[in-house]
Amino acid sequence: MKNIHAKPLVDRISTIDWQEEELSFTHGASRAQLMREYLRRAAVWIHELEKGTSSPPFGTGYSNNWPFIDFAHAVDHSVTPDPELASRLDNFLAEYASAPLTGKICHYALNWYSLSDEAISRFPDLPDPFEPLIAIFERGGGFWIENGFIDFVAHRVRLTDWGQHLDRQPLASLSTEYLDSLDEDQ
């Protein structure tokens, strides 16, 4: 079955208050940790998808695609989101979150959640790469990349080669309670 996870994703993105700037300060520490978790997950996916290929689909370390990658098309090049969901997402983003990077990430996530369960089942031990990014948006909207850093106003994450993220420890939890505790510790 295809696209069963895509509608809940679009519903979720559509409920984000992209204008709530206070959240970007309040949740800066957790958002930076979520980005580190995304980078770790992305590195794990790249490592897995490049195993045994003579021409890696993502190129080397500083690929033009890094760090935000359309993993769905690497798993199944024929994946296509439901046109109505894609249109709904486009309309929402155009009105509330028009930054090009935000749109790119949300579309890659839509592609991901449009994959069939069969396509995903080939990688049972790999984590959902996009969940940390969606949580970042929910906890304070977008971010920007500047001078080799992913910037969250008061917190920054160095943008390095994907291989440097491969052996990082996973974030203990993506639960709201745990993420709130990270913010309280700051």
Results as ranks from 00 to 15, higher is better:
residue 1 M to Y: 13
residue 2 K to M: 06
residue 3 N to K: 13
residue 4 I to M: 12
residue 9 L to F: 15
residue 12 R to C: 09
residue 14 S to L: 03
residue 16 I to W: 08
residue 16 I to A: 08
residue 16 I to E: 06
residue 16 I to S: 05
residue 18 W to N: 02
residue 19 Q to G: 11
residue 23 L to G: 02
residue 24 S to L: 08
residue 24 S to K: 11
residue 25 F to N: 02
residue 29 A to K: 10
residue 29 A to H: 06
residue 31 R to W: 00
residue 34 L to S: 04
residue 34 L to E: 05
residue 35 M to D: 03
residue 36 R to W: 02
residue 36 R to K: 14
residue 38 Y to L: 03
residue 41 R to H: 10
residue 41 R to S: 07
residue 43 A to Y: 00
residue 45 W to N: 00
residue 45 W to E: 00
residue 47 H to G: 09
residue 49 L to T: 02
residue 49 L to F: 06
residue 49 L to D: 00
residue 51 K to V: 04
residue 53 T to H: 01
residue 53 T to F: 01
residue 57 P to Q: 10
residue 58 F to Q: 01
residue 61 G to H: 05
residue 63 S to W: 05
residue 63 S to L: 04
residue 64 N to V: 14
residue 64 N to D: 14
residue 68 F to K: 04
residue 68 F to D: 02
residue 69 I to N: 04
residue 74 A to S: 15
residue 75 V to L: 08
residue 76 D to M: 00
residue 77 H to D: 14
residue 81 P to T: 01
residue 82 D to V: 08
residue 84 E to W: 12
residue 85 L to E: 05
residue 88 R to E: 08
residue 88 R to D: 05
residue 88 R to I: 03
residue 89 L to R: 07
residue 90 D to G: 12
residue 92 F to D: 12
residue 93 L to A: 11
residue 94 A to L: 15
residue 95 E to W: 04
residue 95 E to A: 15
residue 96 Y to E: 13
residue 97 A to R: 09
residue 98 S to H: 15
residue 99 A to Y: 11
residue 100 P to S: 15
residue 100 P to H: 12
residue 101 L to R: 11
residue 101 L to Y: 07
residue 101 L to G: 06
residue 103 G to I: 12
residue 107 H to S: 14
residue 108 Y to S: 14
residue 108 Y to W: 14
residue 108 Y to A: 14
residue 110 L to A: 06
residue 110 L to Q: 03
residue 111 N to S: 14
residue 112 W to Y: 14
residue 112 W to C: 02
residue 112 W to M: 06
residue 113 Y to K: 09
residue 113 Y to D: 05
residue 114 S to A: 10
residue 115 L to G: 04
residue 119 A to H: 07
residue 120 I to C: 04
residue 121 S to N: 13
residue 123 F to D: 02
residue 123 F to M: 07
residue 124 P to T: 06
residue 124 P to E: 08
residue 125 D to W: 13
residue 128 D to V: 04
residue 130 F to D: 09
residue 137 F to A: 09
residue 140 G to I: 00
residue 143 F to K: 03
residue 143 F to M: 09
residue 144 W to P: 05
residue 147 N to I: 01
residue 147 N to F: 10
residue 147 N to L: 11
residue 148 G to R: 06
residue 148 G to T: 05
residue 150 I to R: 00
residue 151 D to L: 07
residue 153 V to D: 10
residue 157 V to W: 00
residue 160 T to V: 09
residue 163 G to Y: 06
residue 163 G to H: 10
residue 164 Q to V: 03
residue 170 P to R: 11
residue 170 P to H: 08
residue 174 L to M: 11
residue 175 S to D: 12
residue 176 T to S: 14
residue 178 Y to Q: 05
residue 178 Y to D: 06
residue 178 Y to P: 02
residue 181 S to A: 15
residue 185 D to V: 13
residue 185 D to M: 15
residue 186 Q to F: 12
residue 186 Q to P: 06
